[in-house]
Design a protein around this nucleic acid. Structure first.
Lengths: 198, 198
DNA sequence: TTTTTACCATACGGTAGCGTATTGACAGTG
DNA sequence: CACTGTCAATACGCTACCGTATGGTAAAAA
């Protein structure tokens, strides 16, 4: 916590962005409107239009901010640990469910009706998927299998976010560990996988 | 195709619902507004307010319609086939990816900011999850494992919908079959599963 | 044929939000 | 002290949409 809201003196661009993100996560893009936002911040829109050309400029800033904040952090946090790929993968799952996904959900909903946003989100998805896939490759799966398993892992998380009814962290943790076990297990009745031991 | 749009004579309540669903799927709830909708249907809102008390009544109808249309159909189609649980599961996957998920996506986004909608969607999710879980149980997994596997399967699909960049049907089919293989495989290196043959 | 019924148009008043223009307050700098 | 830059208030015009009221029309029923 650095300075959140209502430190009465002067607002800066970043303050609007922070507030915007909050509203975005809470109520969707359609709800981030300049006048209500101004009311929320206890100023008038006179302030807003000093910092931003128009509403669209704020929206652009929100998207950029989101990319900046999430894109690297998780992957970097996982890579920071010294461990084998399988452990990293588990760690990735664990970290991922620490987020309630509200912000990301709102952005995905937004992306549905805005191709510019969709492109950005797609880029982020690609990056995260590739990272996950590489982990599976390192674990020892063939590329095609690594791809499918990475997708299952990632899509599951996204799906869990968009469904988003889970609250019990302990339960989620247990499940995520089971998922990890299932996804890293060598199948015994199929022609699909040859795991090179480790 | 029964009567879609623009059969010039008289509009009925259902016509508005159909058009509403289309807009909903295409552009989200926020976009289903009565005047634009009326323009789309080449009438004035005078017509709309004859069929509906207000905008909310249409929205309610849209939600109800969605529930009515999807809730049973897929499960029933799967149950219609005579086959073992594993085959049914595969069939379920195959049928599921035939939908582009746009409508469902829009509804989920909507649910984010409307608890009434959220409750309905949660109910649908529960039903579908239970069905999937039962399939895994029938295949021979223990209940806890069936639950997790069902979640992985279902969440993956939901995740794929919300990410929604896939177009190549053949590719999706191939992947879904791989997923099926992975999820029905007995793990060999874990304490998790005992598959009772079949 | 008259009368309903079902559907639609038109016109209205109201609210919410956008963006602009202008002026004010105040802090720091010269 | 005067000046300048930074942020904020106020007031304005404009558009999109909501919901209502009222009247019109064409087809079905009587």
């Amino acid at each position: 916590m650095v300075k959140t809201t209502d430190s009465s003196p002067k607002l800066k661009r970043q303050d609007w962005i922070d507030a915007g993100l909050k509203v975005l996560a809470e109520s969707g893009v359609e709800a981030v409107r300049v006048e209500p936002l101004a009311k929320l911040m206890k100023v008038t829109k006179g302030s807003f239009y000093w910092h931003f050309k128009d509403r669209q400029e704020l929206l652009d800033a929100l998207l950029a901010e989101w990319v900046k904040l999430q894109t690297n952090s998780i992957i970097e946090r996982v890579e920071a640990i010294k461990a084998d790929a399988s452990t990293k993968l588990l760690r990735l799952f664990e970290i991922a469910i620490d987020d309630d996904g509200k912000e990301e959900n709102a952005i995905r909903a937004w992306a549905t009706n805005d191709s510019k946003v969709a492109a950005v989100v797609a880029q982020v998805d690609r990056k995260r998927l590739e990272y996950t896939r590489d982990l599976f490759v390192q674990i020892g799966f063939t590329l095609p299998e690594a791809i499918v398993r990475a997708r299952m892992a990632y899509y599951s998380l996204v799906g869990e976010f968009t469904i988003g009814t889970r609250t019990d962290r302990a339960e989620r943790l247990a499940e995520v560990r089971m998922e990890h076990a299932i996804l890293t297990a060598t199948s015994v009745n199929s022609q699909l996988s040859i795991r090179n031991s480790q």
